[in-house]
C-alpha cells in the first residue's frame, strides 16, 4: 500500500544529517492513508518516529545483513524519516520501504513490542 504523500528526496547538498544532533525535529511528515486505520495507523506513526530518531534495536541477523549491504544505523534512520511505503505483514510485523542516505532502496522488516525491533533489512 503506497502512502499518499511520498516525501521528496531532500537534496543532499542542503541536508545536514548531523550524527550528534540527529532528528530532534521529527515531524509528522508521513501522511498515512485512511485505509490504515485506528490502532494500525498509530502503530505505524510510532514505529516511524522511533526509527527516525534512532530508538530501536536490531536482531543479530539484521546486523549481519546490514554489514553485507554496508548499511549503518544512519541509513535505517533515514528510511524511518523518508519512508516511501509500508505494509503490515502477517504475525504483526511491518515492511517499511525507503532509501538509504545514498538514495539506494532499502527495506526494513520490524515489529513494535515496547521497543522497535528491526528483524531484517534488504
Amino acid at each position: 500500500m503506497k502512502l499518499s504523500h511520498a516525501p521528496e528526496r531532500v537534496n543532499s547538498a542542503e541536508y545536514s544529517f548531523d550524527y550528534l544532533r540527529v532528528i530532534d525535529k521529527v515531524t509528522d511528515f508521513v501522511y498515512v492513508k485512511s485505509e490504515i486505520k485506528g490502532k494500525n495507523k498509530e502503530e505505524l506513526r510510532q514505529i516511524l518516529r522511533m526509527i527516525s530518531s534512532g530508538d530501536f534495536f536490531v536482531s543479530f541477523h539484521a546486523e549481519q545483513r546490514m554489514q553485507e549491504r554496508f548499511i549503518t544505523k544512519m541509513d535505517i534512520m533515514y528510511v524511518g524519516k523518508f519512508a516511501i511505503s509500508s505494509n503490515k505483514q502477517e504475525h504483526g510485523s511491518w515492511l517499511i520501504e525507503g532509501q538509504d542516505v545514498e538514495g539506494d532502496s532499502l527495506s526494513l522488516v520490524c515489529t513494535l513490542k515496547g521497543n522497535v525491533l528491526i528483524a531484517t533489512v534488504f
Binding site: G54, S59, F60, T72, K73, H91, S93, T111, K113, L117
Partner: peptide, 17 residues
Amino acid sequence: IEKVGEEDVEVIDMDIA
C-alpha cells in the same frame, strides 16, 4: 533473546551506533 511471534530472536542488546 526476544520472543517475536513463535520465534526466539537473538537481539543485539545495545545501540548499534
